[in-house]
């Protein structure tokens, strides 16, 4: 019997772009910038072809993408499993809401909330930065639950009713392109950071070889704090944006969906590269919206999809696509 073996080889254009870095033809330029360009084009065109209802869904998706990128960045490049998505959204949302309710205009309250919120979240998580893996996850997961209980019990910040009557982002075109613009900037900035910048190498060292980084005289807690700040900044911006999308801020901003969905999106999309969480979010959030008619049954669909990916397709969609893009496969005789 003839035995066959599947062989994967890098495409010629991939090898040329990898090794020489001299860009010698349009084909190679397109190979390098093509995927990024395609992403920009898709995000530009998508809002034009869908109904206003789905535009709103896409705006919400954008918030989840910011959280997923932050989660993927912390988990894959810094080694912190952070379930603090709800914390980031909640803190950012409430800060912006509170500021807006005392008269700060939206155009100031959103960026200030993103920045100040990131500082607050980083300080809150600072004591547990030496923790690793599941312990950090637990602490970051508990904070939003704590905040929600605190608000409900003491009645501060409007208590269970929240704060209503805030400024609303009314122009739906502006809304959607704003969040898409922010997520594009975020993802390009982050992939540059982790792939090319020296700081990105330090982050990866913190994840893979903490001792060598410490032995190099680098304070890893400081770098972990910087990484958490970056993720928290994205999440807090998402929260502030969400607040002004509805003109209302309440306890639902601390909902655990914001913490859990990024994990699911990273599983589905693939964890190796930052585009994985992005793709995963763009599949999962609209899917969950489509299944709204089935009520709580959608949780079951959701679970089935997750189990499928965890068990049968661990590399995730994005990793699969990247492989197809960069390599070709053929069968060879052994």
């Amino acid at each position: 019997m003839q035995e066959l073996r599947k062989e994967r080889l890098d495409r010629g254009v991939k090898v040329r772009c990898d090794s020489i870095y001299a860009v010698s033809s349009l084909k190679e330029v397109m190979f390098l910038v093509g995927p990024g360009l395609a992403l920009v084009l898709i995000l530009l065109v998508l809002p034009l072809v869908v109904s206003p209802y789905w535009q709103r869904v896409l705006s919400i998706t954008g918030i989840y993408v910011l959280l997923s990128i932050g989660f993927g960045f912390l988990a894959n490049y810094v080694g912190l499993v952070c379930l603090g998505g709800a914390l980031f959204v909640g803190v950012g949302g409430y800060l912006s809401g509170i500021m807006n309710s005392v008269g700060v205009p939206m155009i100031l309250s959103i960026p200030i909330a993103a920045f100040a919120g990131a500082v607050i979240c980083t300080v809150l998580l600072l004591p547990c930065l030496p923790l690793r893996g599941v312990y950090f996850a637990i602490v970051s997961f508990v904070y939003p639950l704590l905040a929600a209980r605190l608000i409900a019990a003491t009645g501060i910040f409007g208590g269970t009713d929240g704060i209503a009557g805030l400024d609303v982002l009314t122009n739906r075109w502006f809304n959607i392109y704003l969040i898409f613009f922010v997520l594009l900037v975020a993802i390009f900035f982050m992939s540059r950071l982790v792939n090319y910048e020296d700081l990105g190498l330090v982050f990866r060292g913190v994840k893979d070889n903490e001792q060598a980084i410490i032995a190099s005289g680098i304070n890893i807690t400081w770098y972990k704090a910087q990484a958490v700040f970056i993720a928290a900044f994205l999440g807090c911006f998402g929260g502030a944006y969400l607040t002004h999308l509805y003109g209302w801020v309440g306890m639902s901003l601390f909902a655990i969906d914001f913490s859990i969905l990024p994990v699911a999106a990273t599983v589905v999309g693939g964890s190796g590269i930052l585009y994985g969480p992005l793709l995963g979010t763009f599949l999962l959030v609209p899917l969950s919206e489509m299944m709204r008619d089935y009520g709580t049954l959608r949780i079951v669909f959701y679970a089935v999809i997750l189990v499928f990916f965890v068990v049968f397709w661990t590399e995730g969609i994005m990793e699969y696509l990247r492989r197809k893009y960069e390599q070709f496969e053929h069968w060879v005789r052994v």
Binding site: L199, V202, S216, G217
Partner: peptide, 8 residues
């Protein structure tokens, strides 16, 4: 690169 990134 990471050790060269260190303050020292």
């Amino acid at each position: 690169v990471p050790p060269l990134f260190s303050p020292r």
